Simulated assay, not measured.
Amino acid sequence: MSAREVDLPPARPRTSVQAVVDRLITAIAVRDFAPGERLPAQRELAALLGVSRPTLRAALEELTRSGFVATRRGRAGGTWVLSGPGEATRRAQASAVTRTLLPSWSELEEAFDLRRLVEATIARTAAQRHTAADDERLRVALAAYRVAGGDAEASRSTDAELHAAVCAAAHNSQLTALSRQLLARVNLGLVWEPFTRADYDRALPQHVGLVEAVLASDAERAAAIAHEHFAITEDRVRAALHEVGS
C-alpha cells in the first residue's frame, strides 16, 4: 500500500492525477467502494485523499473514461462505481493496485500488526472499564449492525458505531484517536472498513463475541476476539494484491 504516515496526505508529494486515479482504483479493488455504490461528494473525497478538487475532478474523469465509474446529473446525482470490470479494466486495475500497494508493502505489514495489537488493547481496556452507559451503547450498536445485513452503506456506518462504542468504553481519547489513525493508515487513507457480504458474515459473530466479552468484563477474551477481528481489512487488502499476481 502507499503506506503514508498517518498525518501526511495520501498522494504526497506526487499529487498527480494518475496517483489519485491509482488510489481510487485500488479502493474499488479492496471494496472500500462496492459495485453500485456512490462515491462520497467531491469535497469530502478530496479532503480524504489530501488533494485539490480540480485534481480529483480530473481523476474522476479518467475513471469514467476507463469504465470504473459513471456520473449521474441532477439532485440525486453523483459518481457511482460500476460493476463487472472488463478485460481492459482488469488490466488497469492490476497496474493501479501494484503501483499503490507494492512500494511500501513491508511498512504496511507492520501497520497491520500494530493495528491488531492496538485494537486488542482497546478491547481489553473496554472490558475492564466499561460503565452501564457504555453497555447500553454497545447493545444498541450491535443490534443496528445485525439489522444492516448485506447493505454496504448501512453495514459500514453501524460497524463504525460499534467500534466507536468499544473505544468509548475504554475511556481513553488517545486510544480512540490512534484507532482511527491506524484504520486510515492501512486502508488507503479512508476511515471506514472495506465491505463485502462475506466480510459482513465473518464480522457478525465476532462482533457478537466482542460485545459479550466486554459486557462480561472478560478482558482477555475481548482482546483475543479483537485481535482476530481486525484481520478482516488486512485480509481484504492482501487479497487485492494477491489477485494481481494470480
Results as ranks from 00 to 15, higher is better:
Leu60Thr: 03
Arg57Pro: 02
Gly36Arg: 06
Leu49Gln: 09
Gly74Gln: 08
Arg57Phe: 04
Ala59Gln: 10
Thr55Gln: 10
Arg65Met: 13
Gly74Ser: 09
Phe33Tyr: 15
Arg65Ala: 15
Gly74Lys: 01
Ala46Pro: 00
Ser66Met: 10
Leu45Cys: 06
Pro40Thr: 03
Leu48Gly: 02
Leu63Phe: 03
Ala58Gln: 15
Arg72Ile: 07
Glu61Cys: 10
Arg73Ala: 14
Thr71Tyr: 05
Thr55Cys: 13
Ala46Ile: 12
Glu62Pro: 01
Leu39Arg: 00
Glu37Val: 06
Asp32Met: 13
Leu56Ile: 07
Pro40Ile: 08
Ala46Thr: 11
Gly74His: 04
Ala70Met: 11
Ala59Ile: 12
Phe33Arg: 00
Leu39Gln: 00
Ala41Cys: 01
Gly67Arg: 04
Arg72Ser: 04
Pro35Tyr: 02
Arg72Val: 07
Arg53His: 01
Arg38His: 08
Thr64Cys: 12
Ala41Ile: 11
Leu63Tyr: 03
Leu39Val: 01
Ala41Lys: 07
Arg57Asp: 13
Val51Arg: 06
Asp32Val: 08
Glu61Gln: 14
Val51Gln: 05
Ala58Thr: 04
Arg43Ser: 14
Gln42Val: 10
Phe68Ser: 03
Leu39Ser: 00
Arg72Lys: 06
Arg72Thr: 09
Arg38Ala: 14
Arg53Trp: 00
Leu63Glu: 10
Gly67Val: 10
Pro40Glu: 12
Gln42Ser: 08
Gly74Thr: 05
Gly36Thr: 05
Leu48Val: 03
Val51Pro: 14
Leu56Trp: 11
Glu61Tyr: 14
Asp32Asn: 15
Leu39Pro: 00
Phe33Pro: 00
Arg43Ala: 15
Arg65Ile: 13
Ala70Tyr: 12
Gln42Pro: 03
Arg65Phe: 13
Arg72Gln: 06
Leu49Tyr: 13
Asp32Thr: 09
Gly50Tyr: 03
